[in-house]
Amino acid sequence: MSDFLQGLRLWFAPRRISEEGDTPDYRFSLANERTFLAWLRTALALVGGGFAVDQFLPDLRWGVRVGLALALIGAGVLCAVRAVNHWVRCERAMRRGEDLPVSRFPVLLALAVGVVSLTMAAVVAWEGAG
């Protein structure tokens, strides 16, 4: 968590980062940018999934529908925030010549998506049968 807060300060202090170390090879920066964009697309897909649950499953009970939609949208928000945080930290690590930051986030996201998918399947089967 302190890593995250440290990253948060860096978001708004681009000058402090650009004073550190050396400018990395432009190809590394571009690769970092594409990774950031891939995470942003993941975030957009999660938010879009939330919209889809909200709009295309009207037969679900209100609480279930809104709960699932909010869970997906919340995961999208986390993913977007983490995307920019990870981008900043990678950029800084490359400038300093350090190892790239490691993260538990992909595993957590995968587990969360798995849990939501199972819940979704159970809910759809339950409501379809009932």
Partner: peptide, 30 residues
């Protein structure tokens, strides 16, 4: 051929757009 790195402003703006869509989604869902 050798572009500069993405600016912080652009990265934050793109992230902000995703958060804006999420906000609209929360409003409509709830």
């Amino acid at each position: 051929p050798r572009p500069a790195a993405l600016s912080h402003r652009a990265a934050l703006a793109a992230t902000g757009c995703v958060l804006g869509l999420a906000l609209a989604g929360c409003l409509m869902a709830v």
